[in-house]
Each structure stands twice: as C-alpha cells, then as structure tokens.
Write a protein that binds this DNA or RNA. Sequence first.
DNA 1: ATGGCACTTTCAAAGTGA
Length: 264
Amino acid sequence: MNITTWNVNSVRRRLERVLEWVDEHEPDVLCLQELKCQDAEFPAEAFTSRGYSCSVFGQKAYNGVAILSHRARVPHSDVVTDFPVPGDGQARGIACTVHPERCAPLRLVNLYVVNGGELDSDKYSYKLKWLDALVEWVQAERQRWAGPMIVCGDFNIAQADLDVHDPKRWAGQVLCTDAERERLDRLKALGFQDSWRALHPAERTFSWFDYRGAGFDRNEGLRIDLHLVSGLPPQGPIDVVIDHDARGRPESSDHAPVTIFLGP
DNA sequence: ATGGCACTTTCAAAGTGA
C-alpha cells in the first residue's frame, strides 16, 4: 500500500505530467494540492478511466485539494472537506478513510497549509490561526478514529534547519519561524511522527525547489511535503520516497511527489 | 533591498506562491 502527496501547482496545467507519473508508478492513493480549479473543472475522467475514484474539494484559481484512490485496490469512503476553518472560502483540507485489501482501514487527511506571505502580513497571522485550528481539528479526529491515521500534504513549514538548504538565509523567514514550527510540534505531540525524517535522521533533502534561480539544479530547496503517521503497525513505514526525477522534468510542478510505502 | 519564475484571471497587470 502506498500513498503519494503532490502539490501539482495547477492540475489542469500539469495534467500530462501527472498522468505520465501515474502511469509509471500506479500509486494506490494520490493526494493532490493546489488544484487551482473548481470541482467541475477537475479532469476527473482522465483518472477514472485509469481506475481511480476522485474526491475533489476545488476552488477557483487558488488552493484546491483532492484524494484519488484506485477503486479496486484501495477504495475510499467517508469523505469530509472544508476544515479546519469551515466556511473561510479556502479549499485546503480533505479527509477520507481508505480501505486497503490487506491492511486495516486508515484515516487519511490531505492538507494544503496556508503559505503565509510576509511576516507582517494578514496572511501570516491567518496561517498561525489556521494552524491552531488544525491542531484542534486533528485532535478531535484522532479521538473519533481509533485506527491508524496519516496526515499528509504541503505543510508550508520547514520543521528544522536540516530541512532547509540554507538555514542562515531562511532564519526567521515565513516557513521557518519558531511560531510555525511550534504549531507543527504541537500537531506531532498528538502522536504523529514525520515518516521521512524517522527513516533518514540526518539527511538533508528537499521536496520543494524554487522555479526562480534554478533552485532545483542547485539543490536549493525546502522539505515541506510530509506524511505524519500515527498508530501504524510496529514496523511502521517500509519506505518514503521523494521523487526528484519528477521534479526535474520539463514543465514540472515546483514540488516533487512524495510517496509513503506501508506494508504489506 | 530587489528580482528571479510560474500560474490564474479574463487580455494585462496584478495577486499569489514559498
């Protein structure tokens, strides 16, 4: 069983790249962020014809999240959207239960965390408020659901300096502030572990690279796309892969797809 | 301090991203 998270930076603009990747990797579950389209514009047919069912929470021009799962191998159910701040007009959260053939059902949360703009902006204060609401929401969800849970997505927070190509340059900048990191710490304190970091305790690798300044070619980026896992079987994730090949292709998203592999 | 690049809206300059 595997679950991919990928900020695609416009699903319509990126459709060929995404389908190419799906055909190559045949993921069981695909969590997308930054669709940048409304539900009706989501290219569902391209995915349903490949065997996936699509749950979409879209928005015009900005944000937008979706969970796709292979309907034969891993059907999904019990979809909820519009959290953790219901009615804010920002499509940033979608959750469901996935039902793998040979493991226990798993609650899956797909997030596009607020970016935050500049430190002195309303966007940044909203990001902190949104993260506070997220901690509350996940805590409640954890109480509703006793089984394994994964919270994945584009977190727009580099948790530690080891997740940053140039920590001095990024010190105190949005995505790296203590206030954001403190909220991510509180989320993890609910019983979640950053699966990639748990498997690679000292490695400096990134999931996002700026289009500007040839960030990818210079390996200058941030690791902000995560799978936080809770209540998995003792052996935990078998592997987590950040697909730099996909990021390096022409007309790619500025984020790489990140996939967690769970047994069996 | 600023721009670099990419995307969307609705046709062109501005807002957003990270």
